[in-house]
Amino acid sequence: MLAVARLEGGAYGMSVRREIEARAGRSVAIGAVYSTLERLEDKGYVQSVERDSGTSADGRARRFFELTASGVDALQAASELQSRMWSGLRLRRAGRS
């Protein structure tokens, strides 16, 4: 979802895959991206629109994804939850005095 948000309207399967790869530094399968986006759509966090990208080589329309209002809410909630959980926390490794 963060990748979809970052891509600001330019999010489709392969661009999301590339974004995750670039940001998180790990390789993701295109199938996994599709499957995840589909699940998010089922939950109503993202919505997809078919539109001609103009750059695609075969001229075929692509499915672009963007965040819905409830998707934005969910992201913000997750982010706030994370920062609340982190605040004031200092980590120490176990087994050391």
């Binding site: 399967g13 392969m14 199938g31 599709y34 589909e38 695609s56 080589a57 075929r60 692509r62």
Partner: peptide, 24 residues
């Protein structure tokens, strides 16, 4: 292989993106 396993409605767009990425 991939084409055979994908559901029909996701097949063409996923494969098109994958091919496009591969080629370009």
């Amino acid at each position: 292989c991939l084409s055979a396993l994908l559901p029909a409605d996701a097949r063409s767009s996923l494969l098109a993106e994958l091919d496009h990425e591969y080629l370009t």
